[in-house]
Structure formats: structure tokens, C-alpha cells
């Protein structure tokens, strides 16, 4: 029984949830063109947890904006659940942005409710659901606060809860735990893994923390300095569910080391 519960979610055969094909992006600015991404190519199978790491400014957020359908690539294309992506697909793809982007006139609770409100969920139901998620990120007591009354880390947690409430098949997360202390980071990482397993989500997760990347992911994509290219793909063979003890193992250390070396050589 325990073995079954511990087994990783069986990889469902079938088309990948996300396919990125020869993606290149150039920002046209007043000071000339800035190439942010160069020929990015990868696939994320259904139900996988994929991490993206790379130096600051290498184009991770730009890549996520494109995966969200908010930014048109200069070249190449993105296919999300077998649809070529041209605009946001909120039913399939949800985003937790790098900056919390809360609606400043809504309370913490109303911000978490927002995606549910948009799709017309009944008030009582969305309230319950949002409260549950605020509880999960440890902010139930702050439900009626406006964003400017919250700390940076608290705002980030509200925005994570909102990402969960939208409940998309594919969740894009841009350094969601960056503003948090180590302990909250670990707890929320575990909660994220629980939600991911329970609801069979696909997650694309940008982070600067290599430990976090190894701990959470099935595969980690390593990007180079700008213009961002994928220079390494590291499969994380650690079994699931992941435990804190694993962090002390040799394998964990080796994987972390391997990613670190890739980043350093860029």
C-alpha cells in the first residue's frame, strides 16, 4: 500500500502539455534590439514538474510571459495542450507572477477569489475555497487586509493562493517563494507538491534556489546568460514523495552540484 502511495504519478502517455519550438524573442527598445531568448526548445509532458534556473536577466520571466500567452515570440511557437498559443488560455494555464500583482483595492480574500469570481462561481462557494487557500498559505487572519497593509512575502503568498484558486491544468510560477523565509519556503514547497500530486497538475517553476529546484522538480532546465538558451537539462531521479532527509543525501548533493556547474560555465 505504502509503496503505491509513494509511487510517482504514472506518466500519462499522450501529447505533452506544453511544447516550445525554436522560441526566440527580441525586445525592441529605444536603445536598440535586446535579444532575450535564443532558440528555446523543450517539452513538458502532462503532470510533470519542470524547473527553470538561470542567471538574473537571462529571460526566464520573458519565457513565462510567452507561455502565458501575454507576449508574442519573435520566432518559433508554443503549443499548449495541442493548441498553438496566440492568447492567454486561462482554463489551461495559470500564472503566479514574479511581482505579486495583487489588485490593490481588493482584500487578500477577494484577491484569492478573483479568478473564481471571473468565472461566475457562487459567492459562498468561492469564499470557502479562497479561505481554505489563505489558510494553506498561513494568511487566514489577514483575509480582510488590503495589499498595502501586507508585507512583501505575505503579498507573494496571497498571489500563490490565487494561482491555486484558479486551478488551471498548467501552473506557471515565477520565483513564487523568492520573498519568503526558508521555513515558509519549505512548507509552501511541500503544499505545492501535495496540490500537484492530488490534482495531477503540470508545473513550470522558475527559481534561483538550486536546492528548491532539485527538491521540487522532475526535470530542471538550466539557462545561459542573455540571450537565454537552454544549456543543460537535468533529470531528477529522486523518488516521490520527496522528504527533507533527501536533501542530505549524496544524490541530492550531486544533482545540485551538476546544476551549479552548468550555471557557472555559462
Amino acid at each position: 500500500m505504502a509503496a503505491v502511495a509513494n509511487a510517482p504519478a504514472p506518466a500519462p502517455a499522450g501529447p505533452p502539455d506544453v511544447a516550445v519550438e525554436h522560441l526566440t524573442h527580441v525586445y525592441e527598445t529605444a536603445n536598440g534590439a535586446v535579444k532575450a531568448l535564443d532558440d528555446i526548445d523543450f517539452e513538458v509532458p502532462q503532470g510533470k514538474f519542470v524547473g527553470i534556473v538561470g542567471p538574473s536577466g537571462c529571460g526566464k520571466s520573458s519565457l513565462l510571459l510567452m507561455l502565458a500567452g501575454l507576449l508574442q515570440p519573435s520566432e518559433g511557437r508554443i503549443v499548449v495542450r495541442e493548441h498553438a498559443l496566440t492568447a492567454p488560455r486561462p482554463a489551461d494555464v495559470g500564472v503566479v507572477f514574479q511581482e505579486a500583482s495583487l489588485l490593490p483595492w481588493k482584500t487578500a480574500l477577494e484577491n484569492v477569489e478573483f479568478p473564481l469570481k471571473l468565472r461566475g462561481t457562487a459567492r459562498a462557494e468561492r469564499r470557502d475555497r479562497a479561505l481554505e487557500l489563505l489558510e494553506l498559505v498561513g494568511l487566514a487572519d489577514f483575509r480582510d487586509r488590503l495589499p498595502h497593509e501586507l508585507s512583501g512575502g505575505m503579498r507573494q503568498r496571497v498571489s500563490i493562493a490565487r494561482g491555486f484558486s484558479q486551478d488551471p491544468k498548467i501552473l506557471l510560477m515565477d520565483e513564487p517563494f523568492a520573498a519568503l523565509d526558508e521555513q515558509t519556503r519549505l512548507t509552501l514547497g511541500d503544499e505545492l507538491l501535495k496540490i500537484w500530486t492530488r490534482h495531477q497538475k503540470t508545473v513550470i517553476f522558475v527559481t534561483h534556489s538550486l536546492t528548491e529546484a532539485v527538491y521540487l522538480c522532475d526535470e530542471v532546465l538550466v539557462m545561459s546568460h542573455r540571450p537565454g538558451r537552454i544549456i543543460d537539462r537535468v533529470t531528477i531521479p529522486l523518488e516521490r514523495p520527496r522528504t527533507y532527509e533527501m536533501m542530505a543525501t549524496e544524490t541530492f548533493g550531486h544533482l545540485r552540484e551538476r546544476i551549479w556547474r552548468s550555471i557557472r560555465t555559462t
Binding site: A68, G69, L70, A87, P88, P90, A91, V93, G94, V95, F97, E99, S101, L103, W105, F114, P115, K117, L118, R119, R162, Q166
Partner: peptide
């Protein structure tokens, strides 16, 4: 613009963007 972006990926229709973002802002 971040809030408009956010509304779009959260599933807002054009009308909802006006009502939920432009109007209160």
C-alpha cells in the same frame, strides 16, 4: 498594465477587464 495582464490570465473577458480593473482603478 500588470493588473490588466493579470486579469487576462485569470480569465477575464474584455468587459470584465473594464469592470474589474479599469473602473475601480
Amino acid at each position: 498594465p500588470e493588473l490588466v495582464r493579470l486579469a487576462k490570465v485569470s480569465g477575464a473577458t474584455r468587459w470584465q477587464i473594464y469592470r474589474e480593473i479599469y473602473w475601480p482603478a
